[in-house]
Write a protein that binds this DNA or RNA. Structure first.
Lengths: 209, 209
DNA sequence: GTCCGTTCGTAGAGTCACTCTCATGAGAGA
DNA sequence: TCTCTCATGAGAGTGACTCTACGAACGGAC
């Protein structure tokens, strides 16, 4: 059975008590889940166990994450509003835009998270590439991202077909770069891989239609 | 629950009685399934019903197709041997190779299948883009295809990262072209969309690393 | 501080995709 | 014709995911 879900994520900077609890629960569930996955493997852990370990009901886990895979693939992209996305993406240079986003993300992550292994993002990303069903869910997220950026990477005079190809190339090219980063044990920053790997794609946006 | 499956498909030109029956069963199951899906929608049909309509046991459906989505996404690529693939793909011009494969496929399909709507490939492809879980399964197939062609599209001096990006761009670019073809109601042959859409990707293999 | 409406987590039952094991029967080879 | 092989079917089981109330606590209004 292959399910697809869209989940509403918390609004940024929630202030109420209720919202605070929610944010905390989300974090707790994700951490407990990751602990269990690391300990016994993704398939061997049930949602019920995760819920119990997080002291919430299974229904709550589904409400927050939609699917088991959603526990790992908390899609950054999906939570972005279309307007925010428009501000981030420059149709003239989508590769550069992506690169900037990756750099910003890495910088932000470097501040809040412990750099040692066993911590994010390593811990999660491992499953993206090792656990087939998670990889699939991640692919689906990227597919959705491609659809969303489609209008943003379409330059004047570019045919719709080429625009679609371009969007997919960009997004799944990022996937490829990320995988190489993972396979290299993350010795260099992700941005390096994206920059080097996607360089040839720049031609797509500088060639005449 | 998101499952991933690899299924062994029938060897080409099976000669025995047993094998013949098998091939026939596979066709029957797929057709009955498609009938039911068209009639009541993908989600509303259970494997049990498909099995009953095809006069086989549910276990057999799973044996042949692995998943419910597998009934629609009978991956052409997965059934190809690596050697065959190597003969088909020219590392100098992967886009051209893909184009040739698409043209051959369309030509072959044009002979055996009725051209009118409601017949393949239209009937099946509709689900690729409309049914989320099927779309996901198709993405996964393409992802696997990208991994398989990786060594075949790597030219001398191309870094591994760029090779990965190239493979993904090619395969998911094809996805994009196919979707545009679908959205256009298939008025022009698929090959046209692939040719036009992937044209800018040729630069990837003609640019210096 | 109290009351009310809304929101949100929980309980519980149900569906169905998918797995596994085992026994049987029918093709395939001698 | 006999036996070996192996695919099929039967049946039980697992667990992801859904749906429908229900109850409680939050937040605002006064």
């Amino acid at each position: 059975m292959l399910k697809m879900v869209t989940v509403t994520y918390a609004s940024p900077m929630a202030t109420g008590l209720r919202a605070r609890w929610r944010e905390n629960a989300i974090r707790t569930i994700q951490e407990r889940a990751l602990d269990l996955f690391d300990e016994r493997g993704f398939d061997a852990v049930t949602i019920e166990e995760i819920a119990a370990a997080s002291e919430v009901s299974p229904a709550t886990v589904y409400r927050y994450f939609g699917t088991k895979e959603g526990l790992l693939v908390a899609d950054q992209f999906d939570s972005l509003g279309q307007e925010e996305l428009e501000q981030l993406v420059d149709a003239r240079d989508p590769v550069g835009s992506l690169l900037r986003m990756v750099r910003d993300y890495e910088a932000a992550a470097g501040e809040t998270e412990t750099p040692r292994r066993g911590r994010s993002p390593w811990r999660r990303v491992r499953y993206f590439f090792q656990e087939p069903s998670v990889r699939m869910a991640f692919s689906a997220t990227l597919d959705r991202a491609a659809q969303r950026i489609l209008p943003l990477v379409t330059t004047d005079g570019m045919s719709e077909t080429r625009a679609r190809v371009a969007a997919n190339a960009l997004v799944f090219g990022y996937f490829a770069a990320l995988e190489q980063w993972y396979l290299d044990d993350g010795v260099r920053p992700i941005a390096d891989y994206v920059e080097e790997g996607l360089e040839p794609l720049r031609g797509i946006w500088s060639v005449k239609g």
